[in-house]
Design a protein around this nucleic acid. Structure first.
Length: 553
RNA sequence: UGGGUUAUUGUGUAAUGGUAGCACUACAGAUUUUGAUUCUGUCUGUCUAGGUUCGAAUCCUGGUAACCCAACCA
């Protein structure tokens, strides 16, 4: 009878607000500053905000928090919109804090008129000095009691460009002794003679975050303004401005940001990785950015699913990246066609197969009929995986070894008759005989073998570059280790195989398409791939029980 | 050492005074023309010390630990 609801704490608040008829419609917003690329942490926030609106029948705005012109750029605006769309979300209205500059200026004037804001001529150092510390109260500065008329005039002059950067600021007049540092007369406007990506040179004063964000929420009638934990101390200020300005009472709620093992999530650190060449770009497949994950072959659905599973709460967390990988495999398992590719090739010669003979075998493309079938060329010489042959087989080994039988996937059972080594002792060829009556689908032999391996025909296979990615860092939580986080970068996070062989059906594979390379993992075609030079990214490996077995002994 | 926030298995997250559940991970087994998938099973938890109560993860009191706050960043 009792329905399991399992609401997170924000959903509970919304449900209560709706029950109390506090709001008739839920309006949330996603408010990125256009100063960088979106990452998986943003995806958590995006899913939260948009899904809340979806769940309770409301809407979500996209609002760019563009109040600091020196850091922001249209390039970022575009990438953010692209990522959001790719993730599968539709915003109700596209807005910019800079659209409200006039109104924000008026709000500031109102505050001055009420005696709640003043122009301070102090330098940054002087202002900081008077601010006190968390354990010591601040002190009132010399400009705090400037008359309203003078403040009004000075603020207007600031706007008119009469002063240089840093010469004056506008401050809210609250309480220099407040426990909350953010209430010690916070700066609300600063002078910046800088070009803004949208307003150009119309302004030389810009509002601070605290004076823009809450008011923007209020202007839009955002009902639930959701942000991360570090903004908790800002909430008192958020409410103060709304109260003094007597505007729509948006409410701020905070949840814990996402942290994930073996990566970093701060824009500053990600920027360093790009700028200092530890990765190639913002969309490097090793990056935790949305664009990096997209390029790596992660699907939007799997990222959304991941965000659902990690939940929303207020406690610090460090999510195991294996959960993300699970979500990716889960989706790709349903999505990806199965094909064969040999990453580390060694020749397999079928000694009793007629020279020059080619057969067309039929192979299924996936676990059920919906995937369809394709033709596979089979011949006397094949490429197989070097690791699928062992001269002296280990315990529980059921791949190729002298005398052993294995099935070549979708083809025949073969028996290993011998092998050829070069002077260095490296295996050059594996020799097998095949059992003609064991053809896949027409097997009349009654023989069953333990191992099945993948292969490609040497005469038909096409070469490809394959990029294997590993975790970017050697430690679970690089940000918490001693010293510079970059000391913990995994030097082997990228392994490029310049000459692998893939089956010919992949010759025209389009960038972005995803495949399962049987027994090797999920791969996608990189954006740099251009026939005849194919490039694949390994999205994620398959689970590997044999690797675990080896590790144990 | 001022203020704020948070503590549930290895990792996340539920349980809103009444059987500590779910997912990932790990481990074991079954099926398998992918050592994959699928299926079955197993392991480990309420930060701590008291108190209230028939009954406490939940309420109260005291401790402890972690995180955040002193940009003219957001």
């Amino acid at each position: 009878m009792s329905e399991e609801k399992n609401l997170n704490f924000i959903e509970e608040i919304i449900e209560e607000d709706l029950a109390n008829r506090k709001y008739t419609e839920v309006l949330t917003r996603f408010p990125p500053e256009p100063n960088g690329y979106l990452h998986i942490g943003h995806a958590k926030s995006i899913c939260l905000n948009f899904n809340l609106a979806l769940k309770f029948g409301g809407k979500t705005n996209l609002r760019f928090d563009d109040t600091n012109p020196v850091k922001e750029d249209t390039e970022y605006v575009d990438s953010i919109k692209e990522d959001l769309q790719w993730l599968g979300f539709k915003w109700a209205t596209e807005l910019y804090a800079s659209d409200y500059f006039d109104q924000l200026y008026n709000f500031a004037t109102q505050l001055i008129s009420k005696g709640l804001a003043y122009v301070d001529d102090g330098s940054a150092e002087e202002i900081t000095a008077l601010k006190g510390t968390p354990t010591e109260p601040g002190k009132d500065g010399p400009y705090r009691d400037r008359p309203v008329e003078e403040n009004l005039r000075l603020f207007e002059e600031m706007k008119a460009g009469k002063y240089k950067d840093g010469e004056k600021v506008l401050r809210a007049k609250i309480d220099m002794a407040a426990n909350n540092m953010h209430m010690r007369d916070p700066i609300i406007y600063r002078i910046k003679h800088a070009h803004h990506h949208r307003t150009g040179d119309a302004w030389c004063i810009y509002p601070m975050y605290d004076f823009a964000h809450g008011q923007s929420d209020s202007i839009e009638h955002i009902t639930h303004s959701i942000c991360t934990l570090e903004f908790i101390p800002h909430r008192e200020l958020y409410d103060w401005f709304i109260e003094k300005l007597e505007i729509f009472p948006s409410k701020q709620y905070e949840f814990a940001r996402l942290n994930m093992t073996y990566t970093v999530m701060s824009k500053r650190k990600l920027l360093q990785l790009v700028e200092e060449g530890y990765v190639q770009s913002w969309d490097d497949p090793r990056m935790p950015t949305i664009s990096g994950m997209r390029r790596r072959g992660y699907t939007a659905e799997s990222i959304r699913n991941f965000c659902d599973r990690i939940g929303i709460a207020k406690r610090e967390n460090l999510i195991d990246v294996s959960l993300l990988e699970f979500c990716v495999r889960e989706h790709l398992n349903k999505l990806a066609s199965r094909v064969m590719a040999v990453l580390d090739p060694v020749k397999l010669v079928i000694t009793n197969y007629p020279e020059g003979q080619i057969e067309e075998l039929i192979s299924e493309n996936g676990p059920d009929e919906s995937y369809g079938t394709r033709k596979l060329a089979f011949g006397k010489e094949l490429w197989i995986e070097r690791e699928d042959f062992m001269e002296e087989p280990a315990k529980k080994w059921f791949r190729l070894a002298p005398g052993a039988l294995v099935r070549l996937k979708s083809a025949y059972i073969v028996k290993c008759e011998g092998f050829v080594k070069d002077n260095n002792g490296t295996v050059q060829e594996v020799h097998c005989s095949y059992l003609p009556e064991t053809q896949s689908g027409n097997d009349t032999s009654g023989i069953s073998v333990k191992g099945t391996i993948h292969w490609v025909s040497a005469a038909h296979a096409i070469p490809a570059e394959i990029r294997l990615y590993d975790r970017l860092f050697k430690v679970e939580n690089p940000s918490q280790e001693e010293g510079d986080f970059k000391e913990y970068i995994n030097p082997d996070s990228l392994h490029v195989i310049s000459k692998a062989y893939v089956e010919p059906s992949l010759a025209n594979a389009a960038a972005g398409s995803v495949y399962q390379f049987i027994r090797k993992g999920y791969f996608c075609v990189d954006k740099e791939s251009q026939a005849p030079k194919l490039v694949f990214n390994r999205t994620v490996s398959l689970k590997d029980a044999w690797a675990k077995e080896v590790k144990k002994s």
